[in-house]
């Protein structure tokens, strides 16, 4: 159990990479972090602060890349995706200029900041464009590993960091090449989740175990989803649930359904996430309160999932 933020884990590792490779440049849209302060102090010529100007951040990043640099560009997640979406579309998706876009505050990470700072549409929007890989980060071990993966990547990726410190579920040296991992095995049923919701999925699965339901957990951290890998893992199960802190249209659940469809797997998915009918949330008092507004707090999810899996029918499956 580690207690370092994904942000610090990621930037600490980028710092180490940049110490060895002077071509690495970090662009910050006026975002700080202890590791970035150190970066700026020790490698000022590799650090560019563009101010609160995300559109410019993306075009400057593209230009630096054309001049031979390896660029990480960083801001709060809604602003480094949606504010500059068209710049990303032209520079990164159309022209294929590879940079690493790093956004912090996935989902309700900025829990007390209101809906302008929540980001619950980015998976749908970013995955609608070719050439952009979404890396939805689960813990600090993965955050650190994806600093290296980003460094070696030949396409644009969007690193989706949670702002809050979440417990580590992976151990050093974990292999992330498949883009998804089974964190808990099951023959019958999987909860497929991403980011902070993977932690919730694991808690729910543990609770269900006490009720004699064996629900597995698949953590998806690379979108587009590795269809071969997902299809192989779920082909023979009986029930699937997707779980995300994101609006339902176009999100993880949609992406899972697309895979099932394309691989001829006749399974329905119970998609759990944020209903757009609930609009945006002005509730305060913590992430769980906001999740409660959308009906995806732990209590509501436990009830929903138990009903869906209906204890009797699953037991009879066993």
């Amino acid at each position: 159990m580690n207690n370092i933020s994904q942000r610090d884990a990621f930037w600490n590792r980028v710092y180490e990479i940049a110490r060895k490779d002077t071509e690495v440049v970090v662009i910050s849209a006026d975002m700080g972090a202890p590791a970035l302060d150190k970066f700026r102090r020790d490698m000022p010529s590799q650090f560019v602060n563009v101010g609160i100007a995300e559109q410019n951040a993306i075009t400057i990043a593209a230009g630096l890349r054309l001049a031979g640099k390896k660029v990480f560009v960083y801001a709060i997640a809604p602003f480094i995706t949606l504010r500059c979406l068209e710049q990303i579309r032209v520079e990164n998706a159309i022209m294929d200029i590879p940079v690493t876009i790093v956004g912090v505050g996935a989902g309700f990470g900025y829990e007390d900041s209101g809906p302008t700072h929540h980001i619950i549409e980015d998976i749908a929007i970013m995955r609608s464009m070719p050439r952009i890989q979404i890396h939805s980060i689960t813990d600090s071990v993965m955050a650190s590993a994806f600093a290296d993966i980003s460094y070696h990547l030949k396409t644009t990726n969007y690193i989706r960091l949670d702002r809050q410190i979440l417990p580590d579920v992976y151990h050093e040296g974990s292999d992330f090449t498949e883009g998804l991992s089974i964190l808990r095995e099951s023959d019958d049923c999987y909860i497929i989740s991403t980011g902070s919701m993977t932690h919730t999925a694991l808690e729910l699965a543990r609770d269900l175990e006490g009720r004699n339901i064996n629900a597995g957990v698949i953590d998806v951290y690379n979108i587009p989803i590795n269809g071969d890998a997902l299809a192989e893992k779920v082909r023979n199960v009986k029930k699937l649930i997707s779980l995300e802190e994101h609006f339902l249209p176009g999100g993880l659940g949609s992406a899972v359904c697309e895979v099932l469809n394309d691989y001829n797997i006749p399974l329905r998915v119970r998609r759990l996430g944020l209903s757009t009918d609930k609009l945006y949330c002005y509730k305060y008092g913590g992430r769980e309160v906001i999740r409660g507004y959308y009906g995806v707090d732990k209590g509501s999810l436990a009830k929903d999932i138990a009903e869906y899996l209906s204890v009797e029918s699953l037991c009879s499956l066993g």
Binding site: V25, S45, V48, Q55, N56, I58, T59, I60, A61, A62, G63, L64, R65, L66, A67, G68, K69, E86, Q87, V90, E91, I94, M95
Partner: peptide, 23 residues
């Protein structure tokens, strides 16, 4: 570059100019 969406090429140009300075 590809352009057509206005207001973007200028930023890419500035990025290249900064990269040239760094290099």
């Amino acid at each position: 570059i590809t352009s057509g969406s206005l207001g973007q090429g200028f930023g890419v140009a500035a990025g290249i100019a900064l990269g040239a300075k760094m290099n």
